[in-house]
């Protein structure tokens, strides 16, 4: 099983509902983001190109945050989900520095924190909070190892990219273009 997120940038309007939902679902403290919106503008007025992306931890297949963790607090769980065991984390911040996506932060309580793909919901058969609230239905979540899954079909049929593939981490959040 390999959980991935597939986000349709054509539908996304950057409304940040994903961010808000993550905050309330996961009690993310004020001033911190587990997910966020990036707007990328290329070209000049009046013909710029605009891509809006809902970004978060990419739950990489080669996660440098896991390999640099001195205590094993950062681990790869079922479905390739990268998680941090709070009570094993010493707060050395190596994982923050190791992530090319800057997806992690130090929780005010001291441990490293980030997107969990809402594994607590996924384990109960629900979608991650961000996916479940998205009013544009631009976000999809599922198992890439299942060729019949929606995410597999979307990645087969649509052009897509991932972020900073050159950083070599094999990110698993994909953006349909």
């Amino acid at each position: 099983m390999r959980y991935v997120m597939v986000i349709d940038t054509r539908r996304c309007v950057g409304c940040m509902d994903c961010v808000v939902a993550c905050k309330t679902e996961n009690n993310v403290p004020e001033g911190y983001n587990r997910d966020w919106i990036t707007e990328e503008v290329r070209g000049a007025y009046p013909q710029p190109r605009l891509e809006i992306r809902s970004e978060r931890c990419n739950h990489c297949a080669r996660p440098p945050c896991v390999s640099c963790c001195p205590t094993g607090a950062s681990r790869v769980h079922r479905g390739g989900v990268v998680l941090v065991a709070h009570r094993q984390c010493i707060g050395c911040k190596a994982c923050l520095a190791a992530c090319p996506y800057d997806a992690r932060f130090t929780h005010p309580d001291g441990y490293a924190d980030k997107c969990t793909f809402c594994h607590h919901r996924v384990d109960q058969g629900q979608l991650p909070a961000c996916v479940s609230v998205c009013p544009t239905h631009c976000m999809h979540f599922g198992d890439l190892d299942n060729p019949e899954s929606e995410v597999s079909r979307l990645l087969r049929s649509r052009a897509h990219h991932a972020l900073l593939p050159e950083a070599g981490c094999q990110p698993h959040v994909f953006y349909l273009t």
């Binding site: 940040m16 961010v19 001033g31 911190y32 983001n33 966020w36 919106i37 990036t38 707007e39 990328e40 503008v41 290329r42 070209g43 000049a44 710029p48 970004e55 911040k93 923050l96 520095a97 800057d102 992690r104 932060f105 130090t106």
Partner: peptide, 22 residues
């Protein structure tokens, strides 16, 4: 033409540039 990148993320020590180690 430079790329205009904006993010709504504002994590302490991370944004606008990483500075987790003092």
């Amino acid at each position: 033409m430079p790329i205009e990148l904006t993010t709504t993320r504002h994590n302490p020590g991370i944004d606008p540039t990483l500075h987790v180690w003092g």
